[in-house]
Design a protein around this nucleic acid. Structure first.
Length: 351
DNA sequence: AAGGCGGGGAT
DNA sequence: ATCCCAGCCTT
């Protein structure tokens, strides 16, 4: 790969870069937080989360000391919740070993929890001006199109090859801008899903796919396996004041978040009433709620649900069941979006 | 090397 | 419906 495209790319970046809350702050903590949030997550989704997170946890010691419930609440709805747990583990390690600051070299950065090859490169180059590449999905797309490379980008070997190639040409005077310019180009011009905007591309003269009209053949990715479909029944169990919720296990899907009680399979009204009686409470009323669906990357939940009024949740003897006050539940418990179709009933008074 | 892990916007 | 996003971790 030649470096001739770099000056046009940087010139375009200087003129067209988006204004983002974490840019030009010269604060490595902001760079880190934004890069973690941006993993597999779009810029527009991250913006409001970033602002709130920085407001609540303005520095690394604050993050290291934050109660986990509050941490998950700050991440609620953003997904991939292990990101924020790992970030806190890394923050605690920084407080212990690095005077509460991010280490200023690539190998120490990548040794921290949740910081992989991409994120270490991004922080090192953007926050500290260290000339190392930061190869994400955007960069894969831009590079494979520019070089018409048909290798499978999901192979770790391809990442290594790409990082090595970019390491050799990354401009030492502007490594952070170069990495951001590559990603910005991928996000705004050399887009996925449909036609890239080659007519306005600053590096079109250096792009083989663009010159040959083969843009949509790249990048090449191995097909992913299909989602598994799961049928579940969700129960909104309420007395006059509270809704029953429970905390999910500390490992696996949606670890540590709160959920409405739910079971594998579709329950009949009678089975749903039996479930409630097994909790030790007396059902007074049952109503079927609309079906809902939630799609994770690897699972699809098809949900049936019942709203059940009971005399008093205080009688519950089942372990792990909590009574969430209708007004306080929203403030205190992180509930994943998968329950969004039913979580709204937690706030309503039953007729 | 393969699979788990969220959620949402664009096509 | 399908893709894929400023990926990383565990097995």
């Amino acid at each position: 790969m030649t470096d001739e495209f770099i000056q046009p790319l940087l010139g375009w970046y200087d003129e067209n870069k988006r204004i983002l809350p974490w840019r030009d702050q010269h604060n490595a903590y902001y760079t880190w937080v934004s890069e973690i949030m941006l993993q597999q997550t779009r810029v527009e989704a991250v913006k409001p989360y970033f602002e709130r997170f920085i407001r609540e946890l303005p520095d690394i010691p604050a993050l290291a000391a934050c109660p986990q419930e509050k941490l998950l609440k700050l991440w609620e709805g953003l997904g991939y919740y292990s990101r924020v747990r790992n970030m806190q583990l890394a923050a605690q390690e920084m407080v212990e070993k690095y005077n509460g600051k991010l280490p200023e070299n690539f190998s120490l950065l990548i040794s921290l929890k949740g910081i992989g090859s991409y994120t270490a490169g991004a922080i090192a180059s953007i926050a500290y001006g260290i000339p190392v590449p930061a190869v994400d999905g955007n960069v894969f797309r831009v590079v494979t199109r520019m070089t018409e490379d048909s290798e499978d980008i999901t192979k770790p070997a391809f990442r290594k090859k790409t990082e090595k190639a970019l390491q050799e040409i990354i401009p030492v005077d502007r490594p952070g801008d170069f990495n951001q310019a590559m990603m910005e180009l991928g996000a705004v011009v050399c887009v996925p899903n449909g036609q890239p905007k080659c007519l306005i591309c600053p590096v079109r003269d250096y792009c083989l796919a663009g010159l040959h009209g083969t843009m949509e053949k790249y990048p090449v990715k191995a097909p992913k396996k299909p989602r598994v479909i799961e049928e579940r029944t969700v129960l909104v169990i309420q007395d006059g004041n509270c809704t029953a919720i429970r905390k999910r296990p500390s490992k696996g899907l949606l670890a540590g978040l709160y959920e409405l009680p739910n079971t594998e399979g579709y329950l009949s009204r009678e089975e749903a009433l039996d479930y409630v009686k097994d909790l030790g409470t007396e059902p007074l009323y049952i109503e079927e709620l609309p079906d809902a669906k939630h799609i994770f990357s690897h699972i699809e939940w098809r949900m049936k649900a019942y709203l059940i009024r009971v005399s008093s949740l205080e009688q519950t003897h089942a372990p792990g069941i909590l009574f969430a006050d209708k007004k306080e539940s929203e403030r205190n418990y992180a509930i994943p979006s998968a329950f969004g179709a039913y979580a709204k009933y937690m706030k309503e008074e039953i007729q």
